[in-house]
Design a protein around this nucleic acid. Sequence first.
DNA 1: TGTAATTCCGAGTAATTAAGTCGGAATAAT
DNA 2: ATTATTCCGACTTAATTACTCGGAATTACA
Lengths: 170, 170
Amino acid sequence: MKLSTKGRYGLRAMIDLTIHGQEQLVSIKSISERQGISENYLERLIALLKKAGLVASTRGAQGGYSLKVPAGDISVGDILRALEGDLNPVDCTLTNDELECSAENFCVTKFVWKKISDSINEVVDGITLQDMVNEQLSIQKNFGKVEENDYEQSHLSGSCSNYTNQKTGS
Amino acid sequence: MKLSTKGRYGLRAMIDLTIHGQEQLVSIKSISERQGISENYLERLIALLKKAGLVASTRGAQGGYSLKVPAGDISVGDILRALEGDLNPVDCTLTNDELECSAENFCVTKFVWKKISDSINEVVDGITLQDMVNEQLSIQKNFGKVEENDYEQSHLSGSCSNYTNQKTGS
DNA sequence: TGTAATTCCGAGTAATTAAGTCGGAATAAT
DNA sequence: ATTATTCCGACTTAATTACTCGGAATTACA
């Protein structure tokens, strides 16, 4: 019951792309450097995001990526589903897994899986990429903007907990 | 972002154990036969449930398992967590993953992961094993009780959809 | 026109996790 | 004793995840 690196990296990449793509195209290389994700792998993730219609690309020198849709119109759910596939805890289409649907426990667990996926989707569809970016920028402001490409200096270990309970509405 | 077979099989096993364990101990063999899960594998799952204090065991001939706690006091969350570990979509303890917590996107995705796990836990902790059993029994009643150990006859393919939207409260 | 910077794409590999098996010891009822 | 059962550790196999690699296509810019 874990999200893979696709979802985690990909969401970060999208936030990065939004922040740095206001005026220019953003190259995979630059995201890779800022986020510490391998170029090759990132390339694959962005391909998925492109296929889902969330980002646009321009090839060639000075090329790169941009959002295809305003950040306010992209939900975290759109991003995660593009990368991870559906967010259902079980693949249960009500027609496939014959045995699990036997009379002895006829479908009864499916109600649970359905409720779980509904609640997950509700959460992730209630947060837009723009929300994430706003939150990000406000955090950066509170701590003072730091040099890019400098993880060591900028990492404030443990301070996350200051924020954990602060923001409950997006 | 999928539950493993542990969670799926294990929840079914617990429902089975509750239904068939009212008066006698229930052996792995009998659950295995009713549920179509390999004995060996089931054994491992039940070991996890036992370790979590949800079931009790008696060894030897005529031995077997029983609930250690009333079904109304066991939540689906208790069962799933015993089998799957925590239900958080990412392992993020706010202190481990240094790079993902870099200043460039300081913790901001963590809010999302937290919301997701909160909502999952809320769902699964809001349903008790007894709820599942009641639902199960009422479905069986609607269709007429079927012979045990008889998947072929009893399987009503596709009929799940009749119920999907019916039950919204547990 | 050539060169460098980029996306694009298919194939491949390595590492990890999930899923399940096996053999036999311990225990208890009959 | 015998049989039915849980218990336990080691093992195997299958599937998925997490990448890597090589090179083709495209475009800006000198």
